[in-house]
Design a protein around this nucleic acid. Structure first.
Lengths: 120, 120
DNA sequence: CCGGATCCGACAGGATACTG
DNA sequence: CAGTATCCTGTCGGATCCGG
């Protein structure tokens, strides 16, 4: 079992933490990242499937985001050289684990919303 | 003890999850949010202290970000009406808990980086 | 000391049309 | 079907100066 880092040690090694947090943030930030991840969360999806799942996304944006997520190693792209071509996207093994982060964010979001309402 | 939501139920109740995730993302996204939270993580800080902690941030940006973080209930602002005025910022109780999210992000960032290196 | 006001550039993202 | 290409808009953040 490996050492588990905690933010409480940030004083001794800040740069590495920030880097890792920013890596994660990069995967999740932007208007379309979350919807896209949500769309492929439960299995392979084709380009047009994802586009149908996400109202108002343009093919340009979808293409751009998919490309970057693939480059980041979050998404895997599989081409089947049939006619016509069939392309499928799915989360990488590592990408699937991002749900753990998302769960924590949901948890914090809920408790924070509640805490804020208390005050007002 | 309250029900703990999981992303695996997203199909049955997607909107609430997305809202909470976006709330959390809103607190962490942008160029300066993370440095600012890091700066006040270990106690009250004054405006100029934070500014000194974060190289290259302009007063305009710091002011803007502090204001939004306060509005979000993440930061608490305290004014001491001395002369000259003394203003202190600190994380709210709820804000402190964001470290749990950050820890998860560090964890995912580390494992993901390792996973990506394996492949290449 | 703690900001506010103003002006400006860069880049994320939108709209629409087109292609192998 | 799975994207490109082109053009355009708006928001984020930078720079500088000002004020209580």
């Amino acid at each position: 079992m490996e050492k588990q880092y905690s933010l409480n040690e940030i004083k001794s090694c800040p740069v590495e933490y920030i880097l890792n947090i920013n890596d994660t943030l990069n995967v999740l930030s932007g208007k379309w990242r979350l919807p896209i991840i949500g769309s492929v969360l439960y299995g392979k999806k084709r380009f047009t499937d994802i586009q149908r799942n996400i109202p108002k996304i343009s093919p340009r944006m979808l293409s751009k985001e998919l490309k970057e997520l693939e480059l980041n190693g979050v998404l895997v792209r599989k081409i089947h050289h049939t006619i016509p071509v069939l392309v499928e996207y799915e989360l990488s093994e590592s990408g699937k684990l991002i749900t753990e982060v998302l769960d924590k964010m949901i948890e914090w979001g809920i408790q924070h919303r509640k805490a804020v309402l208390q005050k007002s």
